[in-house]
């Protein structure tokens, strides 16, 4: 499944398209503790979290995460949005709970044009 195809999932909304919409999503990963994300998140994952601050964008860049999905109706703050645009990080949002959002993404892995 490609990053750009996430908008097709029910309940997910594109916030920032990022620099690599054709990048393949390899897995889904859930966590809100940033250092744990740095330690455990696989490169190329879709990271589902409720942390919408600028540090989440930095973590996504440095840990080579494919995209960030903000769940539970949480919102990215303005600094995070601006930084994501600068760094080309793909952002999505959803009202789904974290687990359901990740499960939805996971269920689509390997089923699309990747």
């Amino acid at each position: 499944m490609l990053v750009g195809e996430l908008v097709d999932l029910p309940g997910l909304t594109l916030v920032n398209s990022g620099a690599e919409p054709q990048r393949s999503i390899e897995s889904a990963f859930c966590c809100d503790l940033l250092s744990l994300v740095m330690s455990r998140a696989p490169a190329g994952c879709a990271w589902v979290t409720v942390m919408g601050n600028v540090n989440s964008v930095a973590v996504a860049v440095l840990a080579d995460i494919a995209c960030v999905v903000l769940a539970e109706g949480a919102a990215f703050d303005d600094t995070a949005l601006k930084r994501a645009e600068e760094k080309g990080v793909a952002l999505f949002k959803t009202d789904l709970p974290v687990f359901e959002a990740a499960l939805s993404i996971h269920s689509m892995l390997g089923n699309r044009d990747d």
Binding site: D32, L33, L34, S35, L36, M38, N55, S56
Partner: peptide, 15 residues
């Protein structure tokens, strides 16, 4: 509250 403070910083650096 920003998502830091998990006590993983130095262990991650070593890892």
């Amino acid at each position: 509250n920003l998502g830091f403070g998990a006590g993983m910083g130095l262990p991650n650096m070593k890892k």
